[in-house]
Design a protein around this nucleic acid. Structure first.
Lengths: 337, 337
DNA sequence: TTGAAAGCGCTAACAA
DNA sequence: TTGTTAGCGCTTTCAA
């Protein structure tokens, strides 16, 4: 029956016939408790369903050994992978985790950050925050901070980003090796990472001597892929390959192309970006760029740990390497002139 | 510079030139503080970057007004939708949320539950827990508990489930109305909800006078859909419709069918279950059964609130109604004999 | 409105 | 190894 107050350390001490101090030592895993007494205490605790009071403990010890994580969008499996890396690293280093969800609204991001601060986390990780840079820098002054998916240039904030330009280069190199020269990029607009992906595309077109960059506007949504494909279909000739700014755009493109009787990859090759869960589903089976998400989460924890333990004070920006995942949507161009 | 200790209430009082008690009143939104003084206090707090210490506050007030949520799998967008409902309801009722992730391992589920208990949450919601029923009942004795996606028969535990039998019935009714009589069900094996879906299928086949139930074994994975389709392709004649135990299975089925030159829905209709994010993607565009996930989350919070405020002591099992979402994978059967 | 005092359940020295 | 003594930063009386 929930309603009877939870047991206190005192109660456990009583039940085990020892002092409260001894119980405290047992729960802090102190080596200076005899096995026999430890047993007794643990048994009594178990019996009473005792759970140490985290508030009292943290307050008295003035430390929480807890790291905060702001997951902006629980719907995004991308973030879930990052969290996997965070969780593994945190538990290996002995940190607890305080997870909060922001739902992409400024107000809720702020509320989540305040919650973490009020719980006096040792440090926090923000996954793709939408807050202004100035605001994030202000938060960085309150606690060690790592931002994932964005670069913040501030001495108290570390950043982790995938090297998007490298990702674009890998996509283009793959297409070039297949023999494509006529490659369009569907732009991601103002979405996170869109700019460096575009820059990487432009740079790679030059680097690989593929001729003039050919950009079609877009915005990271499936619909923008549909629109981009429609506009390409208006042209006298289709490009031989399309490099989409992300997987959803690529799916919109392929869908529209297929409605128009254009086959992928026989007539046109398509490359996506992000390697989202949908990319590997067989009817889609999209060639795309994968980002080492788990590694990003792992890195975030270690960066925080360095600040906390080694008292690092200079900021670090960690660029992580994306890789190409080849599936069924890319093939050599049809006829080479 | 993180490292300087956070401001205390005392500091704010000093800066504002008032007593600590007054600051406390302001932060508890007491009506008996003059607007002028409230302003002064708030300004001073802002200035110092003061964040009330949640541990001290909760400890002193012996209450947290916090609800715990165990999200078993952050990768599952299904759970994210539930969380949306939880969040909205919780903030409307003035509860804070403590989110934990279990990663589907018993050990981590237990750890997550202990964390919530140690933080003295007022109640907790477990989303699709894997723990044994006995274990869950034991947890229910420590704090008010709502389990989502499973029914636990215990006076201290409330349950929320979608009415899977009704969902199956809706799927079958839709197919029957299109004219199908020869309908196979691909089973979900031991997966959560598989049993009532199967029972609903069997029941509906009888109810709608569609003849003998025709079950193919499976287990909720895409691969099991592939295998099921292969076994159906061995038969002398295909059924005219396939009711899959979930969307992933349906996708595996469609993929295999299409490799064999069987068209959906022209040759065979396919219905999935869950209305996962992938179901609406156009190249898939799967007819499926949707569950009111946001409502389930909302309900969970209200159930807890009832226990907490109205001191309800009898347990409640809330069945929520699934609905059919018609897309492109269902059509009338080809030729009727 | 304010101040004083007690205490929430625990940790962290220190002495025994 | 154990008991003692102070707090941690806040809320909650109660009286002023």
């Amino acid at each position: 029956m929930p309603g009877n107050k939870p047991a206190r350390m005192e109660d456990v001490a009583h039940a085990a016939g020892v002092s409260r101090a001894l119980v405290s030592l047992v729960f802090r895993d102190s080596p200076k408790v005899s096995p026999a007494r430890r047993e007794r205490v643990l048994a009594a605790a178990q019996q009473l369903g005792y759970q140490p009071n985290a508030m009292a403990r943290n307050l008295a010890s003035r430390t929480t050994r807890t790291l905060g994580v702001l997951m902006n969008d629980l719907h995004n499996p991308f973030f879930a992978d990052i969290y996997d890396g965070v969780e593994t690293a945190a538990s290996a280093l002995g940190y607890q985790l305080l997870l909060t969800a922001g739902r992409y609204r400024h107000g809720s991001e702020n509320a989540a950050i305040d919650t973490m601060l009020q719980h006096r986390v040792d440090g926090m990780m923000l996954i793709s925050p939408r807050l202004s840079t100035a605001h994030i820098m202000a938060v960085g002054r309150q606690a060690p901070l790592v931002v994932i998916g964005r670069v913040i240039d501030s001495p108290s904030v570390d950043s982790i980003m995938a090297d998007e330009r490298l990702g674009s280069l890998a996509a283009l190199r793959h297409l070039a090796e297949l023999g494509h020269r006529n490659i369009v990029h569907i732009d991601g607009g103002r979405g996170a990472g869109a700019e460096p992906r575009r820059a990487g595309y432009i740079h790679a077109m030059n680097e690989l001597a593929l001729g003039e960059p050919d950009l079609v506007p877009g915005d990271f949504t499936e619909m923008s892929g549909v629109h981009a494909a429609m506009s390409l279909l208006q042209r006298p000739a289709l490009p031989t390959a399309i490099f989409a700014s992300n997987d959803m755009v690529a799916i919109g493109v392929m869908d529209t192309l297929s409605d128009a009787g254009v086959r992928v990859p026989e007539d046109v090759s398509v490359v996506g970006y992000d390697n989202t869960a949908i990319a590997h589903v067989r009817p889609i089976s999209l060639t795309t760029i994968d980002q080492p998400r788990v590694e990003m989460g792992d890195m975030a924890v270690h960066l925080l740990h360095q600040r906390l333990k080694a008292s690092r004070t200079k900021s670090v920006t960690h660029l992580v390497q994306p890789t190409l995942v080849t599936r069924r949507t890319t093939a050599p161009p049809r006829q080479e002139g």
